[in-house]
């Protein structure tokens, strides 16, 4: 394994050295690989492919999606961190790969802050606090009252132990001062189904996983975790509006490069991403998957990664889901 990556790095380093001779203003001069650290077809992959398609047009070079799934996005993200910093290997970074993964998994082979050059956010997906139809509470306050009247009896679901939805649920419990049982499912689909059938009472679900059921009326949304209300669910209050202070969390996706890429490449890519995400067609497609288009500067993005890493590391430690 080490031998192989050494080989790859040697080859990549040779390419990088060779390219450094050329001028960065000509970037890009050949196809770019975009590593999506999840298997084809997932929500990260869909967003990655939408962005890759837009970037290809914008940069005049094809951007090829390379799916490297595994270990909550950390396998593919390791490959991004180890790639040559020449701007020809980029990755889709996310809450999973840059905050929750490093917070919950033992032995993640990269530093989410130091090993990457953040380029720009691409989109943000709200967490939605959804309850089963068997739960009578119509508001967050009623839900909290219910949970407090039966300490330890309510179940909150998640898409897996140590997953984003698990930590988001735990954060809600902590912010509201509740004692609840965590029930892990294998993925968003089974977790959503368990909520519909009432096997669990609540779920801090990601928007794409629960949106169709909320619209279909088979589960109810009580609040969204974002700062502002979501355009997809304009009638649902934010956590702050619902009276839960200090709960602010969302799932984000962004474009990252390995640390050490030339500044000119970062600037060029940041411009390109902004242009792609601002395209109404692209925005519409992102929104359809439950992802709100978002852009920011490399510095803002870096700060966000740092903050989220700290936030999720703390909650993971508090509930004992931390890696060693």
């Amino acid at each position: 394994m080490t031998n192989r990556s050494n080989w790859a790095m040697l080859a990549a380093a040779a390419v990088a050295g060779w390219l450094a001779a050329g001028s960065a203003s000509a970037y890009p001069t050949k196809p770019i690989t975009l590593i999506v650290p999840f298997p084809p077809g997932g929500s990260t992959d869909i967003v990655g492919r939408i962005i890759a398609e837009g970037l290809s047009k914008e940069l005049g070079q094809s951007v090829v999606v390379d799916n490297r799934g595994g270990a909550g996005g950390t396998v593919g993200t390791t490959a991004v961190a180890k790639a040559a910093p020449d701007g020809y290997t980029l990755g889709i970074g996310s809450t999973s790969s840059h905050a929750v993964g490093p917070a919950t998994l033992p032995k993640v082979a990269y530093n989410a802050v130091k090993d990457f050059a953040p380029i720009s956010l691409v989109g943000e997906t709200p967490y939605v606090l959804a309850v089963s139809p068997k739960v009578t509470a119509k508001t967050v306050a009623e839900l909290i009252a219910l949970a407090k009247s039966k300490p330890g009896q309510l179940n909150y679901g998640s898409a897996g132990a140590g997953s984003t939805t698990h930590l988001a649920g735990a954060m809600f419990a902590a912010a509201a001062g509740l004692k609840m049982e965590h029930i892990a499912y294998k993925g968003n689909g089974p977790a959503t189904k368990a909520l519909m059938s009432g096997e669990v009472e609540l779920l801090m679900g990601s928007m794409p996983a629960v949106l169709s059921q909320i619209k279909g009326g088979t589960i109810r949304a009580l609040a969204v975790g974002t700062v502002k209300r979501s355009p997809a669910l304009p009638d649902v209050p934010t956590m702050r509006e619902a009276g839960v202070a200090g709960y602010e969390a969302s799932l984000w996706l962004g474009l990252v490069a390995p640390a050490g890429v030339p500044q000119a490449v970062v600037t060029r890519l940041n411009q390109a991403v902004h242009k792609v995400v601002s395209d109404p067609e692209v925005a519409k497609r992102l929104q359809a998957t439950g992802t709100e288009p978002r852009i920011n500067t490399p510095a803002e993005f870096a700060k966000q990664v740092q903050d989220d890493l700290a936030k999720y590391t703390k909650i993971a430690k508090d509930i004992g889901a931390g890696g060693s």
Binding site: A11, A14, V15, T33, V64, V65, D66
Partner: peptide, 8 residues
């Protein structure tokens, strides 16, 4: 996403 030839 295969390379047909060596990356170099």
């Amino acid at each position: 996403p295969f390379n047909l030839w060596p990356a170099l």
